[in-house]
Write a protein that binds this DNA or RNA. Sequence first.
DNA 1: ATACCGATGCTCT
DNA 2: GAGCATCGGTATA
Length: 193
Amino acid sequence: MPLPADFFKKDTLELARALLGCLLVKETEEGTAAGFIVETEAYMGASDRAAHSYGNRRTKRTEIMYHGPGHVYTYQMHTHCLVNVVSGREGTPEAILIRALEPFMGTELMFARRKVKEAKQLTNGPGKLAKALGITMEDYGRVFYERPLFIAEGYEPEQIETGPRIGIDNTDEAKHYPYRFWIKENRYVSRRA
DNA sequence: ATACCGATGCTCT
DNA sequence: GAGCATCGGTATA
């Protein structure tokens, strides 16, 4: 069961924490794959140098971030597709990147898609989890409160840790913001602190 | 364990 | 035509 649309109507940093422990589900013709979200990163829109929507940049790519919380923002990075949850009120272009999952169901399908040996390698990175679940640019513009790509209730994380975001060294002051959140001691987190 | 490097595709200038 | 919110291989320790 998808969470209701209202779940996404939170302050972006609060939503980034609330998403930890939730289940991300993708249904395809090949079957269903799902995993618990264990790592997220917040991108704070107009005022955040590291955000695609910095300074309210509005292009074909960033357009969906203006359409209100709960939308699916997929973005192509080199050969990979990255998945984001749009946050903030309509007109406020904020988003949360999903960086890692703990596989829950459909692991055979994930292994078939990823071609790796260790379970840890299935979903411990933003490009990896998108491929494991079969998420593509086709999902751009959908909503996370309806099938076939949705977020459902999961478990309550014991302890949450925070730190600077990964891979944004070129955006001077923004690189220090503690906008990365992960579940402490979870082995599927993409990198240790 | 960390470090570097090339692949490869889409968006924006 | 440049620039990336990445990944997997190879290289070294």
